[in-house]
């Protein structure tokens, strides 16, 4: 188990380093930041001085090392549009994104697993057909359209829920459901097929031959069916995270996604960069957690 965890940690670290490096390279490709910082009347000497001050005269690997060191300290630089350290902006916005993603994920997994199990148990029946149709449509409707339609119907026409902004739980419902609809559909479809597969498995037949009580039988069934679902949930959680960007923009939800999109229009690259790194790190971390919990559930992976 320890070896397995270490292996996963190493893999996660590699993905993270690759992303950090790509961001660094792209930043250098985009031209010298000096041009943004000095006025148009600056002399060549001014520019050289500024470059030296910023360390841009150093060899690229020294710059890269310094960049990594800065990131490791959580220093993402200054935001010139907010006139504040980017770290503070991220620290303020991240809990909102996390709340949205977690709410959407809870919605997606609870509803998805319930519907999927129901469909599998009633396989071939009317419930099954409805759930399957639902799952198919859910995987075809993009979250941002769903979000707009929700706003139009539930906020504008019916006035039941707030259309945007943050506040109580009622502010969270529409964005969370819009964001969770796609993973919900995916999870329900996979839960259905995984449960059916498990039901057909030899060991479930054997379990039946043991004459165990229905609850024991069900616990064997659900444990086995949960393995592929957990793998998928990890992937979906990652997609949810990038999905927050678009849903946050629609609902003016003050998370890191909205921060990034606004920063994009004001060309505040330090923010964009920081959001990308934070999101990627969260994504990698979540996948790591899923893999480890998978190892905890499936003894065959451990050895």
């Amino acid at each position: 188990m320890v070896r397995y965890v270490l292996q996963r940690l190493l893999q996660a670290a590699i993905v993270l380093v690759v992303v950090v490096t790509i961001v660094f390279v792209l930043e250098r490709l985009s031209g010298s930041p000096v041009d943004l910082l000095v006025s148009s009347r600056a002399t060549a000497a001014d520019i050289t001085a500024m470059s030296k001050y910023l360390g841009l005269e150093d060899p690229i690997y020294v710059q890269y090392g310094r960049y990594l060191l800065r990131l490791a300290q959580g220093d993402f630089g200054e935001s010139f549009s907010y006139r504040a350290p980017v770290r503070d902006l991220i620290v303020n916005a991240f809990p909102y994104t996390a709340a949205l993603a977690v709410a959407a994920f809870i919605f997606a997994s609870v509803v998805g697993v319930t519907l999927g199990t129901l469909a599998a148990v009633r396989s071939g029946g009317r419930v099954d057909a409805v759930v399957r149709g639902f799952g198919f449509i859910g995987q075809s409707v993009p979250s941002f359209w769903l979000a707009i339609i929700f706003v139009m119907i539930f906020a504008v026409k019916l006035g039941w829920l707030p259309a945007f902004g943050s506040g109580g739980v009622d502010h969270l419902i529409l964005p969370a459901v819009a964001l969770g609809a796609f993973p919900m559909a995916a999870i329900s479809r996979l839960t259905r097929s995984a449960t059916l597969d498990a039901l057909r498995a030899d060991h479930m037949l054997f379990e039946r031959s043991k004459g165990v009580s229905p609850s024991v039988f069900l616990s064997h069934l659900l444990r086995n069916a949960s393995l592929p679902v957990i793998t998928l949930s990890g992937i979906q959680l990652g997609e949810l995270l990038s999905g927050t960007i678009i849903v946050e923009t629609i609902f003016a939800w003050p998370g890191v996604g909205q921060l990034a999109i606004q920063a994009l229009s004001t060309r505040d690259y330090n923010i964009v960069q920081a959001v990308v790194l934070v999101q990627t790190a969260t994504f990698v971390l979540l996948n790591l957690l899923v893999d480890i919990s998978y190892g905890w559930l499936d003894p065959r992976v451990r050895t």
């Binding site: 498995a201 030899d202 060991h203 479930m204 037949l205 054997f206 379990e207 039946r208 031959s209 043991k210 004459g211 165990v212 009580s213 064997h220 444990r223 086995n224 393995l227 559930l297 499936d298 003894p299 065959r300």
Partner: peptide, 25 residues
Amino acid sequence: RMRDVLHKEIGYVPQDPAAALDPLC
């Protein structure tokens, strides 16, 4: 009642124990 009979009176030895034993248990 059938479950009860299977639980107490009829034992079963499967063809392929590797497939018949729940791998997570």
